[in-house]
Amino acid sequence: MARSFTLSPTLSPSVRKSVSLIYHFAERESKARYKRSLLGWFWSFMNPLTTVVVYSFVFGVVYNAEPPETTNGNAENFGLYLFTGLIVWSLFTGVVNGSMGWLIGVSDLRKKIYFPTETALLGGAAANSVQTLLEAAVLIAIMLVLANLSWTVVFLPVALVLALLFGLGIGFIVSVFNARYRDVQYLVGILLNVAFFTVPIVFTEELLNRPEVPDLARTLITWNPPSLFVEIARDATYFLEVPQWNRLLAAAAWGIVTFSIGWVYFRDQSMAISEEP
C-alpha cells in the first residue's frame, strides 16, 4: 500500500485546526513585536546581548567577580555564565508574563466565535521559543569559537523544553486569574522580579556554598524549578558536564506535572471566559 508522507492526513480535523490557529497566533505575535521597526529581529538579539554586556561589566569588571571554573578553561567568562542562565530564565518569564496578555488579546474574539482558546497561549509561546532558539544559536556559536562545546549540549534543549512546559503550566493558571482580576499581571511581574534572585543567574554556586548562607535558603535555591532548568543548561553548555540524574528527574517532574495541571485547569476554565462581562 502506498504510504503518504505528508503530515496532514494523520492529524484529526480538530488537531489540524489547532495547529493552524497556533501558527496564526505565533505569526501575529512575532509580527506585532517588531511592528514598525526597521531592524526587526536584530532587536531580539540586542536585548539579551546588552544584558550580558552590562552584567559582565558590573560583575566582571566593577566587582571583579570570578567566573566559575570549567574543565578546559576556554570559556571562563562571567558574561557567558550569565547568558546561559538568562536564556532559560527569559524563556520562562516571557511565557508566564506573555500568557496573560495573549489571553486578554483574544478574549473579545472568544466571546463571538468558538475556537480552542489555548491555541492563543501556545502560539505566543511558540513565538517566544523562536526567539529563544536564536539566542541559543548565538550561545552555541560563541562556545564553538571558544572551543567549549561537547556532546553534553544535547541537554540544552532538554532544559529549554522543560522551562517552556513549566512556564506554560503557570501561564495557563495566571492568565485565567488575570482575565478576572487585571491586577494579577502586576503581582506576577513583581513575584518574578523577586524570583530572579532565587535562581543562580547573577551569582554562582560557590557563593551559595559559603557557611553564612542558611541551609534552607541553599536548599530552596538549589531545588526550585527555574534553578534546576538553569543548572541543566549550564552543565550542558558552560561546564560541559552531564547533569546530575536526580536534578534531571526533578526538573522533568516539575515541568511535566505543572504543565498538565495548568492545561487541565485552563481547559476547564476557558469556557467561562466567554461569559465574562
Partner: peptide, 26 residues
C-alpha cells in the same frame, strides 16, 4: 454570524481576519 464584528479582530485587516476566521473553521 452572531453579532456585529462576529469573530473579527479589530487590529487586523479585513484580509487577515478572513484567514483567521478560516483557521477557526479548520
Amino acid at each position: 454570524l452572531l453579532e456585529l464584528g462576529s469573530g473579527f479582530h479589530p487590529d487586523l485587516t479585513g484580509r487577515e481576519n478572513v484567514y483567521l476566521n478560516g483557521a477557526m473553521l479548520g
